[in-house]
Computed example of a mutant assay.
Amino acid sequence: MNKSKVPKLRRLILDGNAIPYLYPKCFSCMPSLQNISLDANRLTVLRNNTFSELPQLKNVFFQFNYQLKTIEPIAFNSTSLISIHFGYNNFRFDKTKNNNSRFNAEQIFKHTPSLQILDLTNNYLPSDKTTLGLMFAHSDEMKELVLQTVVYCDADREWVHSEFIKRMEQEHIKLCVHHREFDPGVPITENIDKYMNKSWKVVIIMSNDFARSDWCQWECDYVQERRRRQGKDACVLMMLKAIDAYHMTSGIRSLLHTTPYLRYKKGIGEALFWQAVVNTLRRPLSVPPMAI
Results as ranks from 00 to 15, higher is better:
residue 6 V to P: 08
residue 7 P to E: 06
residue 9 L to Q: 09
residue 10 R to T: 15
residue 12 L to P: 08
residue 15 D to E: 09
residue 15 D to L: 05
residue 17 N to C: 10
residue 19 I to N: 02
residue 22 L to M: 09
residue 25 K to P: 04
residue 35 N to V: 14
residue 40 A to G: 06
residue 45 V to Y: 14
residue 45 V to A: 07
residue 45 V to P: 06
residue 50 T to S: 05
residue 51 F to N: 00
residue 60 V to C: 00
residue 66 Y to M: 09
residue 68 L to N: 03
residue 69 K to V: 07
residue 75 A to Y: 05
residue 78 S to E: 00
residue 84 I to Q: 00
residue 86 F to E: 01
residue 86 F to Q: 01
residue 93 F to K: 00
residue 113 P to F: 07
residue 115 L to I: 08
residue 116 Q to Y: 15
residue 117 I to R: 15
residue 120 L to F: 03
residue 123 N to A: 01
residue 131 T to L: 08
residue 134 L to R: 12
residue 144 E to D: 10
residue 153 C to Q: 12
residue 153 C to T: 15
residue 155 A to N: 12
residue 160 V to P: 01
residue 161 H to N: 10
residue 163 E to L: 10
residue 169 E to P: 00
residue 169 E to F: 00
residue 179 H to G: 07
residue 182 F to D: 03
residue 185 G to A: 07
residue 185 G to Q: 07
residue 186 V to I: 15
residue 204 I to D: 13
residue 207 S to M: 06
residue 222 Y to D: 04
residue 224 Q to C: 09
residue 225 E to S: 12
residue 226 R to S: 05
residue 230 Q to H: 11
residue 232 K to G: 08
residue 248 M to W: 01
residue 263 R to I: 14
residue 270 E to A: 10
residue 276 A to H: 14
residue 284 P to M: 06
residue 284 P to Y: 12
